[in-house]
Write a protein that binds this DNA or RNA. Structure first.
Length: 204
DNA sequence: ACGTCGATCTCCT
DNA sequence: GGAGATCGACGTA
């Protein structure tokens, strides 16, 4: 049972509400966690940009057709991307996590990335590498360790910014749709335009 | 069995 | 802002 998945919220609403929630991954190397600062909604059957467009079914997409809270990992160009399935079983709509602000385990993340600063987690492929998220997390539930969203604490954006999804060319109206959500002024938002807020865009 | 193509990242200019 | 890296999944045969 889940406070946001079991309600009748749209995938767009859930994508927005995920901003400020805490993603936690436990590995032998230690615990790492981070606040979600950027998401994208993928609307399944009708969405030309979604992998599950027209209810396509392949072995790789199996997780997309499972119940809300299932983790869907998509790998491409040697990178892994973290998605959350957010609707009832059989409705393949998902939210892509594109950026997180490190909270716990920063040193581990820096080591995995061989980077420091915002570049550690300011992109979908970067944050999975930093947090040690890979194919082994695919199909698992976000309510069960080792990869969870904390139900205990969260933050809230001062302002949510909407924009077009990244890397979706030639998909007609779906290229133009404002289905990307980010914490305005947070430096861990990928390809950030505009200025960094002193408090990184969070409510106090 | 093979050709194509990314929901990306890095490095360079 | 753009090219190249790089590889597994998928479609076609």
């Amino acid at each position: 049972m889940n406070p946001w998945f079991d309600s009748k919220k749209t995938t767009e609403e859930i994508a927005q509400e995920l901003l400020g929630m805490l993603v936690v991954k436990e590995t032998d190397a230690g615990i790492v966690s981070g606040w979600i600062v950027e998401t994208e909604a993928y609307l399944g059957e009708i969405d030309q940009a979604a992998h599950s467009y027209k209810l396509k079914k392949t072995p790789r997409l199996n997780s997309m057709y499972q119940e809300a809270g299932t983790i869907y990992i998509y790998s491409m160009h040697t990178h892994h991307m973290l998605n959350l399935v957010v609707q009832a079983k059989g409705i393949p709509e998902a939210v892509l996590i594109r950026g997180i602000e490190p909270f716990e385990g920063l040193a581990i993340m820096e080591e995995r990335r061989a980077q420091t600063g915002f570049a550690v987690t300011d992109g979908p492929g970067k944050l999975t590498k930093a947090m040690g998220i890979d194919k082994s997390d695919d199909g698992s539930s976000i309510l069960v360790p080792p990869l969870i969203i904390s139900q205990k604490e969260r933050r809230y954006p001062q302002e949510v910014e909407l924009s077009k999804r990244i890397g979706i060319p030639n998909k007609g109206k779906w290229t133009e749709a404002f289905l990307r959500y980010s914490v305005k002024g947070n430096p861990y938002v990928s390809k950030l335009k505009g200025t960094i807020e002193p408090d990184y865009g969070w409510e106090k």
